[in-house]
Design a protein around this nucleic acid. Structure first.
Length: 674
DNA sequence: AGCCATGGTATTTTT
DNA sequence: TACCATGGCT
């Protein structure tokens, strides 16, 4: 019986994958190139352990996103088949994992009743400290938040982080440090935790060997996905547990794209030093793409001064050449992508065949607009997250002030929804709440006193929410109906219908959650995208639009890599720093390696060389052409230049072209127009 | 003068 | 979703 089980676990795996699944070493690092069956191997490893009799709650998979966690859970569950009634394997993010321990063991960690802040709220707190619209040493509140987070995630000093993030400014780190101290003090007063605090609290307690032994004793094995994106702060959660449990880490240095968050792919190279006795295994056969797609991807890495020593080989063999399409404007580009998918649709190809990869949320918006226009169903990974959208935050602010009356950020948001109430008035009301609380009044009494001058429905509505708070979906429903009149006005010109639908989604998600704060926390630590929710009632056949960063693990028959223009790859902002440029190269590499059969690279103008000074460890060097596709050998792609067939338009004055002056070389390639 | 509402602009990547 | 400028109101 056990034998039969093992056979099912290993079915369809190649020799290297089997080796990786069966390894008996206590710590392992699996170096898995793009498309080599990374998730398959992780799932098989988990199933293997379950077959060996390990109980599921003693296994933990740390992933990057809610989606990756859900996929692992469901695949383990599905393939386990019989006995599926058992509790599934835990799969969650570093933050979700740390927070679970902190929440479940207040006596060990000492943080009871603290609320988690997302990036936006955190910036709001910092703005309060810095002063609205003000700067400290030339840095805006958001920039200080960023630099502080970078320092904490990389475990370097604030002064060093400032130098790294703002190399060309002279900044007095002491002045910034004073602001940071005030910021931390404010968070402590209000009992707020940000993302980094969660990891720090856990890491600090793990320094106690008894705590480390206790945490480690929960797990037979901890699997870490996307190991190359693990930063020094996250390593502080791993290191102390190494003696107490097994680690099974999976990653690919060529796909490291979170350097901006402190990840250093070199820590993968030094894995064996950090985790003594670890075994390193490699998966090198690519099952995803055709050789032509891998040839282009390999070429890109070969151009790098860093030796990746990586040449993916396609098990599937040969296919069509990747395509490179150039357009005059982003609108033309988006329009063509939509048209190309619709043409395929007419030939019977499902929408789900397609993946569109974009560099930024912002650039995805143009594509999104085209899909909406053409009624093409899509989900945007990396678009607006449900709990980050303005209307959802509005409603949640009402829940938050009930759940935690000292939540300043939530009070400010809620109060400024009211007509004739701005920052000043809201701040006064919040002060009244604090005063009343300080005088020993209950939350309800404090509200009654502080909200005197405001419309009566507010205090009454908050009371109703409080009464319903045992059923979180009910509380959400009451908050939404209380605020509907003001929200309908606030968003009257801004898609109120769709926003209103989102609020019902929130209500549905809140059902059976234990508390308001637990509900909010869950979706802050592993977010869902609004477009995921609006799509899930359809038959599931939809295009995926994704930022490259959110596209980890994704693959589709066709992949459109959009906006691969000069000045974008590498992004103009990364010029001047060789590490950032190389990270950009890996971003493009991740994008290219998503395609199974057809890789379509699109860009918006003919190439002009991007010249850059780059500082390297060897000194300052001049790069004549930093654009990754600048020296692309013709043989690797099939190139096509599209010029819009438009009615004649008035001639624009010289220099008034879209995006400023460019040398657009249109002369030679336009032969097909004649 | 203080406060609030509104419209136009620009935007790297995420837990 | 800021940020900024502008304009109206108290």
């Amino acid at each position: 019986m056990a034998e039969a089980g093992a056979d099912t676990v290993l079915e369809g795996l190649n020799a290297a994958q089997r080796e990786a699944v069966l390894t008996g070493s206590s710590h392992n690092l699996v170096l898995a190139g793009a498309g080599t069956g990374k998730t398959t191997t992780i799932v098989a490893r988990l199933r293997h352990q379950l077959r060996q009799g390990v109980s599921p709650e003693r296994l933990l998979a740390i992933t990057f996103t809610r989606r990756a966690a859900a996929e692992i859970r469901s695949r383990v569950q599905a393939e386990i088949g019989v006995g599926g009634a058992q509790e599934g394997v835990a799969a969650m993010t570093f933050h979700g994992w740390a927070m679970r321990h902190v929440r479940n063991n207040p006596d060990v960690f000492g943080y009871e009743g603290w609320s988690v802040l997302d990036a936006e709220d955190q910036a709001q707190v910092m703005r309060g400290v810095v002063g609205r619209g003000k700067r400290v040493e030339g840095l805006k509140a958001d920039q200080i938040v960023d630099v502080l987070s970078f320092a904490r995630n990389t475990r370097i000093t604030l002064a060093e982080a400032i130098r790294v993030k703002h190399p060309d400014q002279t900044i007095d780190a002491k002045a910034v440090g004073a602001i940071v101290r005030a910021f931390e003090e404010r968070k402590r007063e209000r009992q707020y935790l940000n993302y980094d605090d969660i990891l720090m609290i856990f890491a600090e307690r793990l320094k106690d060997p008894a705590v480390a032994a206790w945490v480690g004793s929960h797990y037979e094995e901890i699997l870490v996905d996307e190991m190359q994106d693990t930063n020094p702060l996250q390593w502080l959660l791993i290191d102390p547990l190494v003696p107490h449990t097994r680690f099974y880490c999976v990653g690919d240095d060529a796909q490291s794209i979170y350097g901006f968050r402190g990840a250093d792919f070199a820590s993968i190279h030094s894995f064996r030093d950090r985790v003594p006795g670890a075994r390193v295994l490699k998966l090198e056969d690519n099952y995803r793409s055709t050789q032509e797609i891998l040839d282009l991807s390999n070429w890109l890495l070969d151009q790098s001064p860093l030796g990746y020593d990586k040449h993916l080989r396609a098990v599937r063999g040969s296919g069509a050449k990747p395509e490179l399409h150039s357009f005059e404007t982003p609108q033309d580009e988006a329009g063509w992508i939509a048209a190309e998918m619709m043409r395929a649709r007419d030939d019977g190809q499902p929408w789900a065949t397609h993946l569109i990869l974009v560099r930024s949320n912002y650039s995805g918006r143009a594509i999104e607009a085209r899909l909406v226009e053409n009624d093409i169903p899509y989900v945007f990974y990396g678009g607006v997250k449900l709990l980050e959208s303005a209307h959802v935050r509005d409603v949640l602010s009402a829940l938050r002030v009930v759940s935690n009356p000292d939540d300043e950020i939530a009070w400010m948001r809620l109060l400024t929804l009211l007509p004739r109430v701005g920052d000043r008035t809201a701040a006064r009301v919040f002060d009244d709440v604090l005063d009343a609380r300080g005088a020993g009044l209950s939350a309800r009494e404090a509200r009654e006193r502080a909200l005197k001058g405001l419309p009566g429905w507010l205090a009454a509505g908050l009371d109703a929410i409080e009464e319903a708070s045992a059923r979180v979906d009910d509380a959400v429903g009451r908050a939404a109906s209380m605020l509907t009149p003001v929200l309908a006005h606030k968003y009257r010109n801004d898609n109120w219908d769709a926003r209103s639908r989102d609020l019902s989604h929130v209500e549905r998600l809140a059902a059976s959650r234990p508390s308001i704060s637990a509900f909010i926390e869950e979706y802050l630590l592993s977010p869902v995208f609004t477009s995921e929710l609006s799509q899930d009632r359809s038959d599931g056949d939809h295009v995926i639009v994704s930022t490259v960063h959110s596209a980890k693990g994704l693959e589709r028959d066709w992949a459109f890599c959009a906006g691969v223009s000069a000045g974008a790859y590498p992004s103009a902002r990364s010029l001047g720093d060789v590490d950032s440029i190389e990270e950009e190269r890996r971003v493009l590499y991740v994008a290219l390696t998503r395609a199974r059969d057809r890789l379509i690279v699109t860009r918006t103008f003919a190439h002009t060389p991007v010249r850059a000074w780059v500082s390297t460890s060897a000194g300052l060097g001049f790069v004549e052409d930093a654009y990754f596709l600048g020296a692309l050998p013709e043989a690797l792609v099939r190139e096509e230049v599209h010029t819009a067939a438009r009615l004649p338009k008035p001639v624009s004055p010289p220099g008034a072209g879209v995006g400023g002056p460019r040398e657009i070389d249109l002369g030679v390639d336009l032969g097909d127009l004649e």
